[in-house]
Design a protein around this nucleic acid. Structure first.
Lengths: 232, 232
DNA sequence: GGATCTTGACTGTTATCACATATCAGGATT
DNA sequence: AATCCTGATATGTGATAACAGTCAAGATCC
């Protein structure tokens, strides 16, 4: 909705990454933002033309995104955006509610005092008007990751990122319906500030419970929006 | 194990997978079996020549295996087999011990009576002398998956497979040191039969605990072997 | 003699091209 | 009228070739 052509004209950091990676990021962004609808067929040559590259990097990107669960890439046939499935959504959240509170429990004793201040500030600045929707969700992921990072191994981070991306599509749709309401933005900001406060108490069980409730709340919110908007 | 019933008298499914997939499977097998040592550099053209294909499928394979965590594929530089890291090993097992007992809890009420018989038989036939080491580990993964499959969503299966493959390298080294001992084979067979027996009681907590202990035991075994063999 | 620059082989990346296969529309057949 | 066959079109797949970056060894300069 807020994906205006003007926003794409803003200067972006020069990224000397490979074309393949840039294509991967762009297609992923389009899927997460909903610009590419679930089930939509993805033709290599068409995507390549739209992105003004050869279809080799596109091919790579689709393979990577298949591994992330965002696209289906059956051999011999065209790739397509992975469909949305409410049961799948809850399955992923069940995993998140098993892994993340456990990480919170072990992260709390390791977090630096100064880190709480930074995190609280980050939560307070959440959803600033100058940031695009894509940026906001990047911030969101970074925020949650920072809460758990001290106790997270490389594998944990890999799984956290996978789970977060896989649920981001659903959450975006759910919150998208609430977006016009400005009070909702305040609520989310306060929810994240509260989360930092609970972590600051340095009690593993309190932190684990707070994160669990935070996840459960988001899950319910997205579920209500999705089951109401897209029955079946 | 090959759970296919004898009733499937139909013609064998033709498995003319794409070259890319065959290459992926072969490189993955080599890594899991230890034929490709951790840290070893993987040259596209050399691999392509050894496999007698162009380096395009090899490239695809390395990208997929990177997503699985088995190879590192930094842009612009040569890919390499992901190094072994004892801390990482325990981190993955921590995840497994969070996810799999929970799945066991929910799978137990859904398992068919007949399935227990098949699983027990599969456990009894474990490690038959005619099966290669690669086959045995395939059987092992299929066995554990079958225990949890009734309650597992597609996402669960994806994560289970990822975790299992990521730990298989470590476990293989650990068990490799014990392999010459024939009593060890009996022990593993009995351990899996016991696991089926515990599941057959249809008590979620018993099943969860049994699976947790099974995982913990394997983790310890591999840990001891690894910390003794590869210090640091 | 040691540090630095240059050169050359090697490697990943991307583009262009050739081929097998899937998809679909249109027409012939039953 | 429905179904099957058959073409053409489009699509994924794999190979070859050209380009660019990396890395190490050897030459050069201080």
């Amino acid at each position: 909705m807020t994906v205006t052509p003007a926003s794409s004209r803003s200067v972006r950091r020069i990224e000397s990454r490979s074309v393949s990676e840039q294509v991967t990021n762009e297609i992923r962004r389009s899927i997460l933002a909903g610009d590419l609808a679930p089930g939509q067929s993805l033709s290599l040559r068409r995507l390549a033309e739209q992105l003004d590259v050869s279809f080799i990097p596109v091919r790579d990107a689709l393979r990577v995104l298949e591994a992330e669960g965002l696209v289906m890439n059956p051999p011999g046939r065209s790739a397509s955006v992975a469909p949305l499935d409410l049961e799948e959504f809850h399955a992923i959240y069940r995993v998140r509610r098993l892994l993340e509170p456990d990480l919170a429990r072990r992260s709390v004793p390791l977090l630096e005092d100064a880190e709480f201040g930074r995190l609280y500030q980050a939560a307070a600045e959440f959803g600033g008007t100058e940031r695009s929707m894509d940026d906001i969700y990047d911030d969101h992921r970074a925020f949650h990751l920072a809460l758990l990072a001290p106790a997270a191994s490389a594998w944990d981070i890999r799984l956290l990122t996978m789970n977060d991306r896989a649920t981001e599509r659903y959450v975006r749709i759910g919150f998208g319906l609430l977006d016009p309401n400005p009070a909702e933005h305040d609520r989310r900001r306060e929810a994240h500030q509260l989360l930092v406060e609970e972590f600051r108490k340095r009690d593993p069980e309190i932190a684990a419970r707070a994160l669990n409730e935070h996840l459960a709340h988001n899950e319910d919110l997205a579920h209500d929006a999705l089951s109401g908007a897209a029955p079946g």
